[in-house]
Simulated scan of single mutants.
Amino acid sequence: MAESTRDIKRRMRGINNTKQITKAMELVSSAKMRKARISLEKTRPYYETVLSNIHDVISHVKAGHPLLESREVKKSLYIVVTADRGLAGGYNANINRLIHSKFKDKKDSISLITVGSKGRDFFKRRGYDIVGEFVGISEEPYFSDAKEIGELATELFIKKEVDEINIVFTKFVSTISYVPTTIRLLPTDEIMGDSSNQIIEFEPSPDKVLDYLIPKYMESSIYGALIEASCSEQAARRTAMQSATDNAEEMIEELNMSYNRARQTAITMELSEIVAGAEALK
């Protein structure tokens, strides 16, 4: 019985050490999430304004533009945003499953730009065509990262190596709610709109304006998605670590009860042996 109590105490120490780690990670993730939410609150109005402006401009342009060309979709490009680290519950798995469940039987119809090592490793192991990979930016993305991703995606579209560009990321709703989301970036009807009767004069020309505006739309949309994903990642990790800490506390409590029962049993047996020995000496 003494061996049993030692085992229980050893398990309690191990779980308590784990609890301290998960609690520390929970606190770190909470701090990072607050920082990411500040960035998100600043960024959302920016890329929503850019989207609104390009909507207004394109609705008045009748001439075709290479970046707005609609064609038969034979190959799709997906920008997949995951994390560089795990321990975030189902955050990475939800994004990976969203793509894999749709394209596992038709991998030839898709190319990927992966953001985050978790997505890169997942799709590499399954033989997907990865045309670009970006790691080390998932937790704290910069606009320059979005610009680099946007330039690569736009180049593939202009060269007709892909016929559409999509981005898959986790949209932040609240600290306990984040939703895997797919948005089609190019070509898209969302920014075409209906022409109004308002007359707009473009200087130097509509095409020149679009040459500047559409890449900005792409970069802003990608940057917005990266910020949304960063905030969702920290929220998911904080929730996962909080759950792990709570589970550890429950296990310690149960083990403490088991330890007390085992100790009580050992004491009872020792008392019984003493009483039996005293009776034998009479």
Rank of each mutant, 00 (worst) to 15 (best):
S4E: 12
I8Q: 08
K9H: 13
T18Y: 13
K19R: 14
A24Q: 10
S29G: 04
S30H: 11
M33Q: 12
R34Y: 03
R37W: 03
I38Y: 09
S39D: 12
E41H: 10
K42F: 09
T43W: 10
R44S: 12
Y46L: 12
T49G: 06
D56L: 01
V57A: 10
I58D: 01
I58H: 00
K62L: 02
A63K: 11
E69Y: 00
R71C: 05
E72V: 04
A83W: 07
G86T: 03
N92W: 13
R97L: 14
H100Y: 15
H100L: 14
S101P: 13
S101D: 14
D105K: 14
S109T: 14
I110A: 02
I110K: 02
L112M: 07
T114Q: 00
G116E: 04
G119V: 07
D121G: 02
F122L: 05
G127P: 09
V131M: 08
G132H: 03
F134N: 07
A146F: 07
I149G: 06
E151P: 01
E155V: 00
L156Y: 09
F157R: 06
E161K: 15
V162A: 08
D163V: 08
F169P: 04
F172G: 01
V173W: 03
V173N: 07
V179G: 02
I183N: 07
I191C: 00
N197T: 00
E201K: 07
E201N: 09
F202H: 08
F202N: 04
E203I: 06
S205C: 05
K208Q: 12
V209H: 00
V209W: 00
L210I: 02
Y212V: 12
L213W: 01
I214A: 03
M218H: 02
I222G: 03
I222C: 06
G224T: 05
A225W: 09
I227S: 09
S232K: 06
Q234A: 09
Q242G: 13
E249N: 10
I252Y: 10
I252C: 09
I252F: 08
E253I: 01
N260Y: 04
R261N: 12
M269Q: 15
E270L: 15
L271N: 15
V275M: 13
